[in-house]
Design a protein around this nucleic acid. Sequence first.
DNA 1: ATTATCTTTCAATATATTTTGAAACTTCAG
DNA 2: CTGAAGTTTCAAAATATATTGAAAGATAAT
Lengths: 168, 168
Amino acid sequence: MQLAEAKQQFISSWGAFGTQWGINRTMAQIHALLLISTDPITQDDIMEQLSISRGNVNMNIRDLISWNLVERVILPGERKEYFTAEKDIWKVATQIIKERKKRELDPMLKLLGQLQQVEGDKKDKETKQFVEMVGSIKKLGTQADKVLDSLIKAEENWFTMNILKLFK
Amino acid sequence: MQLAEAKQQFISSWGAFGTQWGINRTMAQIHALLLISTDPITQDDIMEQLSISRGNVNMNIRDLISWNLVERVILPGERKEYFTAEKDIWKVATQIIKERKKRELDPMLKLLGQLQQVEGDKKDKETKQFVEMVGSIKKLGTQADKVLDSLIKAEENWFTMNILKLFK
DNA sequence: ATTATCTTTCAATATATTTTGAAACTTCAG
DNA sequence: CTGAAGTTTCAAAATATATTGAAAGATAAT
């Protein structure tokens, strides 16, 4: 396979992969393009390579920046803005985990905590089932939260890094 | 908060949560409803409780069954089909991990393997960057694959279960 | 201060996904 | 075999999401 074809494959698959994870196709494709670009590139480069509009690039780049996956770069003596992506894939992964945890898991745990406070007789079959289910989901979520936190901090954390190596 | 309201909250939040993970809202809501139902329920029950059409229930139930999260139950002497969800939340989680791994991670790793075979001079900056990026994503994916496999088998696996307890 | 270059916004449009509901299909009791 | 009860299918409609592109907003050079 030639490089050009392989790049296309990578970008398009990354996009498809993204949609399965609730990330929009274009955002994932832009990210993919940046991951395999050696140097920072401009909005126009992205527009051209992915055949998408200026507005679309702009909005999705902004999103990627809010996820801390992409940065603006100003090249000295250049008028245009350039963009570049974090290339260390472990950092990319932990960054995504960190953001999703904050945006999704944390609020969910908060809600479950509230739902546990439901009034009513714990002897009632329905109430009992509800409270137990909410409780067990919360427990699992809390445990996941801890594991993910360790993972995010794994670099500074000899212990977690070594535990990871035990899985083989 | 009263039970009825809490249930509604739970179902609706579970649905919203699902959409952020590429699962359709209704499928997640049906699953939520089944999770907090003490006894098996029918398509009509689901239609009524979630105010959705018969066809919609039928398709999403089918999907949930294909994910091994829900089962058909035939009650003796009844004509209707009943449905029930796995209530052990750990099993639910590992089941979802197992399926997503099979449907997404495994194919992705296969593709990355192919992309690593790209022809061209490894001295070329662009080629080098591409091969390295694909390689490092593949490496991370492979490691994740191992960890998730252990997790799926954790119940039968004293070692993993105990490692999990170390995260706190 | 003016102009050229570049970025951002957002209403309108296009696309993709989900939902409906009625017809076709299946199954079983009598 | 026939009819009632239940299930499935899928084209059309509704809804949700993503994209465009042109106008407005910045910014910097002259």
